[in-house]
Amino acid sequence: MRFLAHLDLARTVHRALSRAEIPIAFSEGFNPHPRAGFGPPLTLGVEGLEEWVDLILERDMAATEFLERINGALSPGLGFSRAFQMPRRSPSLTSVIQWAGYRVEPLTAPAVTPKSVEEVLSSEKLEIMKKSKKGHKLVDVRRRIGTLDLDGTTLLAQLACGPEGSLGIVDLMVHFTGLEGPAIISGYRVMREKLYVAADGRPVEIASETDVSTV
């Protein structure tokens, strides 16, 4: 499923909601859309282990009932693991999610070395090439790295993914390895493990409604 593009995933979830007869609300207007808000898009080829979706329903539904219904309407490889109710008018996911936690395990490509992790952590500045509408440009992304750690050969990283700038895990791995983006995806198992909101400037896991609604 990691090769599903963001829009394909969204359409797949919309259709699953409809099959599961979840009373999803629709936007007003001539061309109504289901009111489902997705978190930051996953890079094609990166596994999402804990992604979040905001759903606005037309009537209350117990989380257990929701999970049972929706998971019966999804194909293997996609599933909802948790659900909880949010207060009305909560801010959207994309406006509150600030950090993402990644896990990168080498498959066929060499592991990131402790020395290169040290180098990044001890420097003030980390410039990488980012694609923009007007071609490529150098951007300083040092402040977009929250934590960076090695657990054996596995790289663990918390990277910014909020409205004030983000750093993709593939871009960071390109910096570490000098490989092209696709080679990162085929040479490593790249997972997004968690999404975090920021509370007092620190990443906090989304665990219950209070985490999000107090932001």
Binding site: F3, A5, G45, A73, G77, T108, P182, A183, I185, S186
Partner: peptide, 21 residues
């Protein structure tokens, strides 16, 4: 096959696994 997918356009063409397959 999965090793090739990062390099190609629209890799979902080659993964199967659709609902009702």
């Amino acid at each position: 096959i999965e090793q090739l997918l990062p390099w190609v356009d629209r890799p979902a063409r080659y993964i199967g696994g659709e609902f009702n397959s």
